[in-house]
Design a binder for these strands. Structure first.
Lengths: 187, 187, 187, 187
DNA sequence: AATGAATGAGAATTCATTCAT
DNA sequence: AATGAATGAATTCTCATTCAT
C-alpha cells in the first residue's frame, strides 16, 4: 500500500514545514530534501512551486483554522459571543504562530491569492459573523471586525513573551473579558 | 553642480522605491536601474545589499516616523494623551502604508535587526510612553501598548478601503475618540 | 550508450586540462566551455569549484603518481634503490611537467590541502621510504629525502631544455647514476 | 619635504608586503589600503598593476638578491667556491622565503618576464659562475648548476622545520660541507 | 600631484523548471 | 509513477581601470 499517496503526503508534510519556516522563498530543493523525494517529483505532482504552496496552505487553513464564527454568531448574548470568538481565535492563532506570521508576511507583500489570504479571510469572516449577529441593529460591524482583527494581530505581530495558549485558565478569562468589554464600547 | 552627493541620493531614493515595493527580495540590479546608476556603484557606496537596505530604512524611519510619544506622555489628561497618540500614529502609518507593510512583512520573517524592526520599535516606544505617563499608577501598560499596536496594525494589515489619512476631520475625530474610549476600559 | 557517466567524465577531463593550464584561477566558465557543458552542471555535480579541483587532482594523483617508493625500499642494495627511485620519479614528474608545475605553484601559495599538496606528498613518501630502507642504520633520512626532492624540483622548476623522459636510455642511465652517487655521499 | 617621493615609497613598501603575501592575485585595492593611498594614485604612478609588480620585484631583487657568484667564481679552490656559493645563497633565500615562494609560484605559472623570473635568474647566474670558474676544464656546468639550484629549491619548496638561516654556525658548516662534497661527485 | 566617483566585464553560485529514461 | 541529469536566467559581489576635479 505504499507509493502514490505516500509520496504525496510526504511532500505535503515537508512543504508545510519548509514553507512555514521560509515562506515562498523556500526552494523546491529544500522541500524535496525534507520530503526525501526527488525534486522532479514535486513538479510531477504539483506542476509549479506556486501551486504546491497554494495546495499546501489551503489544506492547512481548512484543517486548522476552520472558524466557527457563524455558529457562535447565533448566540444571542453579545458579550458571550465576543468572548467566544476572541478566545477561540486567539487560541488557534497563537498555537500556529509561525504559520500565521508567514501568511501575514506574504499577504503584506501581495503574494497571496484571495483564497489563502489569511488577514483577508479573518477580517471577512469576522465581518460576516458580526453582521449576522447584529442583524437589524445599527452597529458599525466593520469597525468592530477591524478591532477584533487588531487584537489578534497584536498577539502575533508584536513582541509577545506569553503566547495566549500558554496562559492559564484564569489569565485567559481575564484577558478575554477585558477585550470583550473594550469591544462593547465600540458598538 | 552635479556629481558627489547626487548619485548617492539617486541611489537612496531608488532604493526606497524598490525596497518598499519588493522588500529584501529586491535585487541590486533593479535598484541600480531605477537609480540610473551602474550596479557596482551601489557596492562602492554601500558594500552589500543588506547594508544598503539598513541604511535606507534607518534614514526613512528617522525622518518620517520619529514618534513624539514621549512628549505627548507628559500630557496630564489621559484621554487627550491617548487621542493624540492614536491620531498621530495612525496618520503617519497610514500615509506610509506600503513601506510599513514591507517592514512588517520582513519583521515577521525575522529578517530585520532590532534597530529597524518597526513592530518592535512601535511597541517598545508605546510601552515606554505609557510607563512614563502612568508613572506610579498601577496600569497594565503592556496590555495597553499591545492594544494600541493592534489598532495600528488593524489599519495596515487588514483590508481597508478608507485609509485613515484620507478621512475628513470629523470622521477622524469620531474614530479616534472611540479608540480612546475602548482603550480606557483596559486600564 | 551516452549520458550518465559521460558528462561527468567530460567535465573531469576538461577540468584537468584547464586547471593544469591556469591553476585555481581557472574559472568554472572556462571549464564548462571546454567540457561543452552548462556551467551549472559543474555545480550540480561538484558543488563548488574548490571541490571540483580537489576531486580532479586527487584522481590524477592516484592514477598517475602512485609511487612505489615503499616497494623499492625493500631492495637491499642501496645504490640500486636510489637509482630506481630517481629514475622512476624523474620519469613520472617529467612526463607531467605542466600539472606538476601547477601543483607546486599552488602549494607555494598555500592553496592546497594536505591530501593534494604534491611537494609535501613527495617529501613525506621519500622520507618514509628511506626510513624503511635504512631501518636501524644511522642515516640522516631527512637530508637525503630533501636532496632527492631537490633533484626532482631542479628538473621541474629550473629551465630545462631536455626533459628527463625525452633522454635516451644511455643518457638517463648516466644521469641517474651520477645523482645516485652524489646522494651516497650524504649518507 | 613630504609628498612626491613619499607616496611613491609608501606604495612600493605596501606593494611588496601585499604582493609577497598574495602574488599577482593581490588587488590594487589591498595595496592602496596598505599604502594608505587612493587606489588611483597607484595608477598615476605605475599605470598598471603588472607594471607596479614588475617595478617592485625588480627593486627587491636588485637590493636583496644581488648575487656575488661572479666574484666568488674567481676563487681558485673549487670546494671553497662551492661552499661559499651554497652558504651565501641558502642564507639569502632562506631569509626571504615568503618572497621567494611567491616568485617561484608565479614563475611556474608563466606569469613572469625574464628579468624577474627568479628560478631562471638563479640558474643562469650559477651556470655563468660555474662556466667562469671551470673555464677550460671539461665540466658539465649545466648539471652542476641544476644540482645547486635543486639544493636551494629543496630548502624553499619542501617542508622545512629548520630554515637555513636559523641554524647555528656548526650546523650550517656541516650541511654546507656535505652539499659541497656531493656536488664534487658530479664533476 | 592626488583623489573621490564611476564603471564594464566577469566571478561563483542558486533557482525553478524541463528532458530522457 | 519516479527520478537522475541538465540547463537558462538571475543574483550577489569583485576587480582593474578611467574620468572629472
Amino acid at each position: 500500500m505504499k507509493g502514490l499517496r505516500d509520496k504525496t503526503d510526504q511532500i505535503l508534510k515537508a512543504a508545510v514545514t519548509v514553507f512555514v519556516k521560509k515562506g515562498l522563498q523556500a526552494t523546491t530543493q529544500e522541500i524535496a530534501k525534507e520530503a526525501d523525494v526527488a525534486e522532479v517529483t514535486l513538479y510531477r505532482k504539483f506542476a509549479t512551486k506556486q501551486n504546491l504552496f497554494i495546495t499546501v496552505i489551503k489544506h492547512v487553513l481548512e484543517n486548522q483554522f476552520n472558524s466557527h464564527v457563524m455558529k457562535l454568531a447565533n448566540e444571542g448574548n453579545t458579550e458571550y459571543f465576543f468572548k467566544s470568538i476572541i478566545e477561540n481565535r486567539l487560541e488557534v492563532l497563537s498555537k500556529n504562530t509561525p504559520l500565521v506570521k508567514m501568511l501575514i508576511s506574504e499577504s503584506l507583500m501581495g503574494n497571496l491569492t484571495e483564497e489563502i489570504d489569511l488577514p483577508n479571510i479573518i477580517f471577512t469572516s469576522l465581518k460576516h459573523g458580526l453582521d449576522h449577529h447584529f442583524d437589524e441593529e445599527d452597529v458599525n460591524t466593520e469597525l468592530c471586525a477591524r478591532q477584533l482583527g487588531g487584537i489578534f494581530l497584536s498577539h502575533i505581530v508584536l513582541p509577545n513573551q506569553h503566547p495566549f495558549h500558554t496562559l492559564d485558565r484564569m489569565e485567559k478569562d481575564k484577558l478575554v473579558e477585558k477585550y470583550a468589554k473594550s469591544l462593547k464600547v465600540l458598538i
